[in-house]
Design a protein around this nucleic acid. Sequence first.
DNA 1: GTCTATACATCGATAGAC
DNA 2: GTCTATCGATGTATAGAC
Lengths: 182, 182
Amino acid sequence: MATIVATAWDLARQHGIGGLSLHGLAREIGMRQPSLYGYFESKHALYDAMFADGNRQLLARLVAVRLPDDPRAAVKAFMDAFVRFALEDQARCSLLFQRPIPGFEPSPESYALAEVVLERAVDVLRAAGLESQGDIDCFTAMIGGLVDAQLSNDPGGDRWIRHLDRLIDMHLDDAERRSTRR
Amino acid sequence: MATIVATAWDLARQHGIGGLSLHGLAREIGMRQPSLYGYFESKHALYDAMFADGNRQLLARLVAVRLPDDPRAAVKAFMDAFVRFALEDQARCSLLFQRPIPGFEPSPESYALAEVVLERAVDVLRAAGLESQGDIDCFTAMIGGLVDAQLSNDPGGDRWIRHLDRLIDMHLDDAERRSTRR
DNA sequence: GTCTATACATCGATAGAC
DNA sequence: GTCTATCGATGTATAGAC
């Protein structure tokens, strides 16, 4: 079961998350394709298991980060871990953070894991002075844009992602300025 | 020919850019599927025609923008037009600004249109003080992230995109500060 | 649990008549 | 140019034997 999901990630890395096929997956494991239905009642159920698994991987990575006491340094450490995780695996990144499979929506149980991740991020951001929903939306959009540009245009490189700390400072400074102005 | 491409956009809007099929397209036009090969030698050639068409639409929109003399106001006007165009049509947006079709790369002739668009944007940004490649990369990543978050999480709304002007100011202020510091 | 066999659908592409 | 007919591949899913 865990082997199946791990092998599915392997294939998704090779052929893209949308190019994953049950025939290919079964072949890779040494099974016949119908046998997979003993583990997952549909292909979407497999995607759901992968979605949950990916979020568990991410969560494990994030809780392992030692957060500095300084809130701004904590944001940088947290986001560095997040971005590193996102850049590692384009297929995993798209399944977790986009809707690449038409018709697939994660189940409530799996989505709950994604919400835990988001809550942790919001905690760290709030502690650093990003308080309003608008501030947080701007910040998450920037992180997403940076990761997306990096993966799309320079996978494996650092042309975009090297500006991560600079942009974090820019956002936090801006939020500070806006709050003291009131 | 123009009708075919226009109809293809219609279908892409309905079923996603990846869900576009030649059978469905021919049916919609009132043709049989093999007849399309009289116009396009392959499905990729159709995507290429759509890519070129979309960039021509965008270019037409951008040259119609009256740019204020103030460089910062010009950036805002230009980006407002760009973002408005991007948000209008998710399928068009993904074909023009991402790689949603495995194996499809625009032809050099079509890609040249995309480069014209990019050059215009860079001109406007440079005039407003974004000079280094890093400044411009940060800016484009932010715009992309904003559009992406808007389309993915709140299509038709303005939760993310309403911060466009604020983020433009933030970036331009930051670049100004960095350049005067030297 | 895993297998064989198969149903059923969709797809892009080609051959060849008109 | 457009058609009919068809190929060949790929895909998910199910039935039923072992």
